[in-house]
Design a protein around this nucleic acid. Structure first.
Length: 225
DNA sequence: GCGACAG
DNA sequence: ATCTTGTCGC
């Protein structure tokens, strides 16, 4: 068996659309985000990342599942899809999710938590890539971005574990977290079925040595070369 | 109009 | 994201 044709995740909407319609979809799907912890015993965590080939015409997504808490690679998958949506700040998920979902569909052991390379709730309409992936797959997700999309924050201490709230329009939308001493912090925000506190906890647990989570690092390698 | 702007 | 070697600093 192994019906590779069958997609385990619901196709909630098309991907070749205008940014205007994408925004409406975000406003609609945002209502399905679960902001509470709905996580069982965590034994598998995964990282997803997307690279591009053919001068940006093809998206190459990689998913790597690691055991938790030892963080050793259990399984991985790669999928290529034609890019149907341009890169527009605030609409990243419409560009990267199609390939990510294809790669995730190839994995046999589904992870308990997925760490995404990008924002989650820390988004203009509170529906970044991590939220979108979480709502579609119904898997707990965390957004761990390398840089800021929106929001402001106080200075963060240089010690690992130091952090500050990321605030936008008076709302706490995420955290700026130092995952390694003397290194630029990362931007953590909830995606789906998780609280910010728990998201930060798992993010730190996945960064035993480097700035970025082992999950993201592993996925990035596969998505690039 | 101007600057900002995940990957 | 992507084009790309060496180099400075912990």
């Amino acid at each position: 068996m192994n019906p590779r044709q069958r997609h385990p995740f619901p196709n909630l909407h098309p991907w070749r659309i205008s940014s205007r319609r994408a925004g409406n979809i975000q406003d609609e799907l945002r209502k399905r985000i679960v902001l509470e912890d709905e996580i069982g015993r965590v034994v598998q965590v995964a990282g997803v990342d997307v690279g591009f080939e053919n001068d940006g015409a093809t998206a190459r997504a990689a998913v790597v599942v690691l055991s938790y808490p030892d963080l050793t690679v259990v399984e991985s998958a790669v999928a290529r899809r034609r890019v149907l949506f341009p890169y527009i700040p605030g609409y990243l998920s419409f560009r990267e999710l199609p390939s990510i979902l294809s790669a995730l569909a190839k994995v046999r052991t589904m992870p308990d938590i997925i760490l995404c390379d990008g924002q989650g709730y820390a988004h203009p309409r509170r529906f970044g890539l991590a939220c979108h992936l979480g709502v579609i797959t119904d898997i707990a997700t965390i957004g761990v971005a390398k840089s800021r999309l929106i929001g402001s924050h106080r200075d963060v201490g240089i010690e690992k574990g130091s952090w500050a709230h990321l605030v936008h329009d008076g709302e706490k939308i995420g955290a700026v977290l130092r995952t390694r001493r003397n290194t630029n912090p990362v931007y953590v925000s909830v995606g789906h079925k998780i609280t910010l506190r728990t998201a930060m906890r798992y993010t730190l647990a996945c960064c035993p040595q480097y700035r970025l989570p082992e999950t993201t690092r592993a996925a990035h390698k596969l998505a690039s070369g």
